[in-house]
Simulated scan of single mutants.
Amino acid sequence: MLQMRFINIALCVLAICVFGVSSYPVWAADEKPQPDERLQKLLKRFPAADKNKDGILTRDEARAYRQQMQKRQGRPFNSVEPTHADVKYGDHARNVLDFYQAKSDQPTPLVVYIHGGGFVGGSKRVNPGFLQQCLDAGISVAAIHYRFIDGKKVLLPEPQRDGARAVQFLRSKAKEWNIDPKRVACFGGSAGAGISMWIGFHDDLAKPDSDDPIERESTRIQAVGTFGGQSTYDPIKIKALVGGRAWEHASIFKAYGVDTAEEALHPTLEQQKRYDESSAIMHLTKDDPPLYMVYSEADGPLPANARPGQGIHHPNFGRDLVKKMNELEIENVFIYTPEAKGRNPQREMLEFFQKQFAKVK
């Protein structure tokens, strides 16, 4: 009895580590393997959870172990199977998506989930609670993979372009999958937030005369949701906006194929163009969709001993967006979770999307 009670408590702790508290769901987090202190404490108790035996327990490994333990207790993990799984939307191996179709006699709105992971990791596994809420509200959901940056051939903004291509593909399936192509929103955390904003703010990438019918579809969307999103991926601007060593995040260097701080902070004209093209805020104009943004990382100046990359989800990114969006009179919501006790950003984001969808005629 005591052992079973211990397992149940451990499952609850695993659920918190895997799915996060309600104010900051797991898809808000950078899914690149991180030495999360809570997860590492669990690793000492459950060494078998470390599937690849690398000494670091990731959220994906904790999630898989939790499912395994629940099955042993006869409590299957609450998940929804995709209506269509691993559907290719492009040529690359990671150009695949899952689609979850809501039950409706009428074409449904669509919410597209884009995962985080520093552009080098992550999974299209959707938070099951949010997924079910969308489906219950008559909103279909898609979740995508995209190319990872490699510092050589795949640099920013190629992951963003993959995200835009996925939106075009989904619109091309509107009739077959009962989607309303006029009501589409994108959301994600960290890198997924950056991709979502880039799609939302960038000029339409549709090519009406293309031989590829997918390329003829619009990339414009009706709403964007973000968790810990970066308004810019320009290391010079990140240094000015956040301070500390946030701009030294490993993914920033890899995203542009640079090896040194000197290269990152003194770009060539061609490199600066890539910085600008990759940063969502550089594309922001008054005709862009509303944005719902959530930040949870520590506020204020970064400590003198800050680690490289620390502060990469700083709320100053959101404040920068609020300032410019207010100037352009674009609707936006900024939530800083430590100051938003009693609120449920996950539920509010869905309501925000529904509000925007209702405006579409």
Rank of each mutant, 00 (worst) to 15 (best):
A48H: 05
F19V: 01
W27V: 02
E31Q: 13
Y24S: 11
K88T: 04
T83E: 01
A64S: 15
I9F: 10
G20Q: 10
V18A: 05
Q40K: 15
I9M: 11
R63T: 03
C12M: 03
Q67G: 04
A10W: 04
A48L: 09
L11I: 07
K41E: 14
P25W: 04
C17M: 11
S23Y: 07
E37Q: 15
M69R: 15
A48G: 08
Y24V: 09
P25F: 00
K71T: 13
C12I: 05
A29Q: 11
A49L: 03
F19I: 00
S79F: 10
R38Q: 14
N78A: 10
R75I: 06
A64D: 10
R59A: 10
F19H: 11
R5I: 07
Q73Y: 08
R75S: 08
A64L: 13
G74R: 11
D30E: 15
P82K: 11
D86L: 00
E31G: 02
D54F: 03
P25Y: 00
R59F: 00
K88S: 14
D30M: 04
I7A: 02
P47T: 09
T83K: 03
K41H: 14
V26C: 00
P82N: 02
R75Y: 12
Y65I: 05
R72E: 07
K71F: 10
K51Y: 06
I56Q: 15
P82G: 06
S79M: 02
L43I: 02
A29H: 08
